[in-house]
Design a protein around this nucleic acid. Sequence first.
DNA 1: GTTCAAAGCTAATGATATTAGTTTTTGGAG
DNA 2: CTCCAAAAACTAATATCATTAGCTTTGAAC
Lengths: 186, 186
Amino acid sequence: MPYPAQINREVILTAACELIESEGMAHLSLNQLAKILGVKTPSLYRYMDSKTALLRAVNETTFKGLFAAITPLLDTPGDAPLRIMGIANAYRAYAHQHPVTYGLAYTNTIAELRPDPAEQERAVIPFQALMAEICGEADSLPALRGLLALIHGFVMLELAGQLQRGGDLDAAYTQSIRAYLAGWGK
Amino acid sequence: MPYPAQINREVILTAACELIESEGMAHLSLNQLAKILGVKTPSLYRYMDSKTALLRAVNETTFKGLFAAITPLLDTPGDAPLRIMGIANAYRAYAHQHPVTYGLAYTNTIAELRPDPAEQERAVIPFQALMAEICGEADSLPALRGLLALIHGFVMLELAGQLQRGGDLDAAYTQSIRAYLAGWGK
DNA sequence: GTTCAAAGCTAATGATATTAGTTTTTGGAG
DNA sequence: CTCCAAAAACTAATATCATTAGCTTTGAAC
């Protein structure tokens, strides 16, 4: 092992996440990142193919963290609506804790930054069974999609500062999801 | 009027929109834009303060177009759920027709690109009355927020390529909104 | 025809991502 | 203990950006 490495893929990744989260997307440059890591810019290329690849990895990390925060709640006592509400709250909490990277992960005006979308849809399959308990097997896929849309949409609007007319956002979130589930339950 | 102008703010804006929509966000450079307009790059600065300001203008255009596509449907025959569904479909259709600029408008990993969010929330107030017909005045704000979240979230997931497990997306959209409204109507 | 201000241009700067080629380091072979 | 090879980092250079400063062209009004 000649020449011990000063950095590696992982520390680059976490430094990038922290920098994005604290300074915002616009201030993430490889120069800045290298300076933080105590290394010159081109050295980063030994561990990543491009800035785009790095950002894609950041997004993968975000999704991984998000699902890690959520999946444990699948095996929780209570009926389906209650468990779904717990998951929805954990989801929203994660997004609030990682607002910039969450936004980046789903933002994707640039298609190259997306992790494999097919894989993500697979990751969400376990949740479909939960919806099936409410609306039946046959409708469980469309019902799941609407649920994801509601959750994701609410969080995105919040993060974009688009829900600022006052009122209790926590309550609005809970009530809306409850209404959605009730609507499918009929 | 010495020296007739070859360009103006508006043609820059529409060219920018078209370029973004056809080539994607990543390929929008002022150089490219100037070349399309038959002008040298620095000349653009006579009509805009910065690239950021241009993108903010693009976003304003997007919102304006979106609301222009939607608001006429407020005065349509039919009960509240029917009218809401018409609006939701028009909304989704607009997003499908302008996928990149729609994504950009709501993406906003970079806060400077956002048009005044307060104004946008005001633009959506007329739709609150429609929700009130379903769930009553008292709950109309949270119910509206959930509806916007559901619509926006669904469209964003679609555009991000995150709903690719097959199935009828049109139906899923319609059914989910119907369920949501039914849930609030109880 | 001269004037003048608007509109465009050239040239330059500093930041950026990225590539090519060189130097430094050090664990292990002799 | 010395030396070597290769891994890891570095320097230097390029092309592309956005942006600024200052110069040149245009054409309508007098």
